[in-house]
């Protein structure tokens, strides 16, 4: 509904503005940021993933990913179970293993594969947008019927010791990748 409202606004903007395409992209980034926020809310990390009770829940994103500003905007002032949400922007393939969520959006496939492989079994909720399910990726975002959908690799989630909310699973396309 928010989306439709946004869509209505965007449509209004698009009718009277030549940069309508840019607006739709902006909307998609915000949607992705909201998805990541909801994933954070519907996922339970093991207690060892945090140094302390009030330590922030950190989401890592590639520095130049266009979703990064939307993510920062969506996370501002939010908290999940008392943990403030933080966004860390990384320059390359290094440093992902200390994050709680690794968002691998607009990244080169090689880099995505390296990072995913590096994070396999590392208690990091990985969210990627590769063309197909990845053995080491937990959640994959993909567009379908002009909607944004996601699939969950249950085996990867189990290896990462993450418990995904059953409601999340009900909405997801579950893949049983090895």
């Amino acid at each position: 509904m928010r989306r439709t409202r946004w869509a209505a606004m965007v449509l209004a903007v698009a009718l009277c503005w030549p940069a309508a395409l840019l607006a739709e992209e902006l909307l998609e980034r915000k949607l992705k940021a909201a998805f990541v926020y909801n994933f954070a809310r519907l996922t339970t990390w093991p207690a060892t993933a945090f140094a302390g009770p009030a330590m922030p829940l950190e989401t890592c994103i590639l520095e130049h990913d266009p979703v990064a500003p939307a993510l920062q905007e969506a996370f501002a002032g939010k908290a999940v179970e008392g943990r403030p949400l933080a966004v860390r922007r990384l320059a390359g393939a290094a440093g992902w293993d200390s994050c709680h969520i690794a968002y691998l959006g607009a990244v080169p496939p090689e880099l995505a594969r390296d990072v995913l492989r590096a994070l396999a079994g590392r208690r990091v909720l990985t969210v990627h947008e590769q063309g197909a399910a990845q053995a080491d990726g937990v959640i994959r975002l993909f567009p379908a019927d002009r909607k944004l959908r996601f699939e969950v690799n249950q085996a990867a989630a189990d290896r990462a010791q993450l418990r995904l909310n059953a409601r999340l699973m009900a909405l997801a396309v579950v893949v049983k990748a090895p």
Partner: peptide, 15 residues
């Protein structure tokens, strides 16, 4: 309400 919360937050009307 509990069953619908995920569908609601992800905007999944069908679900």
């Amino acid at each position: 309400a509990d069953s619908s919360v995920a569908a609601l937050v992800f905007g999944d009307t069908q679900a």
